[in-house]
Amino acid sequence: RYRLTITFEETAFDCEKEIDILRTENCSLCQGIGCKPGSQPSRCPNCNGTGQVRRVQQSIFGRFTSTTTCSQCHGEGRIITEPCPQCRGTGKEKRQRSILVKIPAGVDDGTQIRLMGEGETGTRGGSSGNLYITLSVRPHQFFTRDGDNILYELPINFAQAALGIEVEVPTLDGKVKLKIPAGYQTGKVFQLKNKGIPHLHRSGRGDQLVTLRVVTPDKLTKKQRQLFQELANSLSPAESR
């Protein structure tokens, strides 16, 4: 198993990552057999090559037969009398490998990718297992994710909220223009169709949901305070609440 960290943007587009792993592979000298080149394993004399030992016990209740794994060959049915000098008879050795991982668009934090045949090697020259890559997604500066939808909070001042404004909103595909009509309040959600994360196992994409947040200034200049006071005086009681 291997944990691979990717960026938020890389979850939305097909990408490739090269990883370096240390894994067990067949010995390059004996090809995983474990014997010195030119020699062969011999049949285990303890189990006669079966890998199991049968024992018959006699008791007052009758005869009982038990079968256990051979302690001499450890169930393999053969023993190595001339071990490989490179792997010392294990048939395995550690090697550093670089592997290219293809990451499909639509993955999420915790998604697992299976690489067939890239895992640890089998016993005595057997085939290799699989390598499982678990993805960890690095948080984005201002995007968050809800399923395949992208969430973005857009701050504007209350003058812009009152008058309306056209702004540029960042998306994974670049900036797009969004028109904010006059009078909208904090919490209003605008939907940017097909600007979200691609669906992993089907076509199409999610949306980007832009939530409006009207920001009230906490520091005002003398001129700004005067203008706000004039505005407050011009509003009716219902409008000023």
Rank of each mutant, 00 (worst) to 15 (best):
G206Y: 01
I33D: 14
L22K: 15
L192N: 04
S234V: 07
P41W: 12
T90Y: 04
Q112V: 12
F228M: 11
R114Q: 11
P170W: 00
P83G: 07
N48P: 06
K193F: 10
G34K: 08
L115P: 09
I19M: 05
R241L: 05
G122T: 09
I133E: 08
D109H: 10
A161H: 01
F64T: 13
T111Q: 09
R202D: 04
L192P: 05
T7M: 00
I197D: 01
L100Q: 06
V107W: 01
Y2I: 13
E118M: 13
Q229N: 14
I6K: 00
G89V: 03
G110N: 04
F13A: 02
K175N: 11
N46L: 10
R114Y: 04
I180H: 00
G32D: 03
N149W: 11
P198H: 03
L172T: 06
D207S: 11
R78V: 14
Y152P: 09
K94T: 12
Q141I: 06
R63E: 14
C73T: 00
T50I: 08
T11R: 01
S98V: 14
E166W: 00
G89H: 05
C73K: 02
Q31I: 15
Q226I: 12
P170G: 01
Q208H: 03
N46H: 13
R145D: 08
T186F: 02
I133H: 06
R55N: 09
T65C: 06
N26C: 15
E25A: 15
K193Y: 10
T24Y: 14
K193T: 12
E18D: 09
N149V: 11
K102L: 07
I133S: 08
C47V: 03
F13S: 02
F64Q: 13
Q31F: 15
V101C: 08
G129Y: 09
S28D: 13
T90W: 05
T5E: 07
Q185M: 04
L163C: 10
D148V: 12
